[in-house]
Nucleic acid binder design. Structure first.
Lengths: 160, 160
DNA sequence: GTAATTGCAAATTCTTTGCACATAT
DNA sequence: ATATGTGCAAAGAATTTGCAATTAC
């Protein structure tokens, strides 16, 4: 069986190969292995997670090679960085459907998902005006969650 | 004269002092100096930039103290982190008006500003449904700019 | 055959931490 | 007075880089 995720991954993988070929760059086994993991992930992976996933299947490329290959994937537009303030970066495959919209409580760091209706098309329209073709977006709304607001009030009537 | 920026900074500074006082934490000169720089900035500063700004005015607190104070400012909700993939973090004062909306070309890294009409209020409404009070938002739309699309076509008809 | 990549370990860079001393409340 | 903060230097962690050996084209 072939899942939709695998289909998307394989299409991206083909694009990657083509991109390399067009530049006469070698499609080494390491590159293909790394790309397979990163492009087939259902959530943004850290470099370490990529290495671990590779190790689970036998001899794996080194960390340096993982970083170098991810750089290539970013350059060819198949991957984007994502930062969750964890002290390291995550790398997410670019697919049309992987936009994220989230709420972040600035007091406690809690993250909740959010849906702003029509944002994808509004953003795409605005991007088009600037000559861009948009693929996905990431929205973070900063604020304060209900729990932290309650806490704030119970503590002092003077503080923030 | 007092600029609007200075007014906003001073209001934030007062909130900071109150927040500290409410917790019986000392408002040391270092904390006040650091907060003055960070809260009065018109763009997100890196830790190093904060130190440099302080040094320009005489003896300055050390880097460790800058990081520690920024942590406090984040905890009290007056500052948020921002990541521009530069290899270090930036810190931005939280004001109602400092939302950002931008376009990022995944091929060349070029950043352009964008405006999605009504996003602030749409986001606020969606946040409210989740029990949040939103303060600001950050939208990044990933895509490919006109120049990179042209380049792509001229290179190969096979590549990405 | 040749230009590009890999692997390893050392180097870099940002950020955090430990601890003796100083200080705000 | 005492809890808390500060400075300094050392530690930590993620990422990058140099270079000899290897490999895809």
């Amino acid at each position: 069986m072939t899942t939709p995720l695998e289909l998307a991954r394989d299409e991206s993988l083909n694009r990657f190969r083509s991109w390399l070929r067009a530049r006469s760059l070698p499609a080494t086994p390491q590159r293909v292995a790394i790309a397979t993991v990163v492009l087939g992930a259902d959530h943004p992976l850290s470099a370490e997670e990529v290495v671990d996933a590779l190790r689970a299947k036998g001899p794996a490329p080194g960390t340096a090679t993982v970083y170098r290959t991810i750089d290539v994937l970013i350059q060819c537009g198949l991957v984007v960085e994502e930062d969750r303030h964890e002290g390291f970066r995550r790398f997410q495959p670019v697919r049309d459907d992987v936009s994220t919209e989230e709420l972040l409580c600035t007091a406690c760091g809690h993250v909740a998902t959010l849906t702003v209706d029509g944002l994808a098309s509004d953003a795409a329209a605005a991007a088009r005006k600037a000559g861009f073709v948009s693929v996905r977006h990431r929205l973070v709304v900063y604020g304060m969650c209900a729990a932290c607001r309650a806490l704030r009030e119970s503590q002092t009537n003077e503080a923030l």
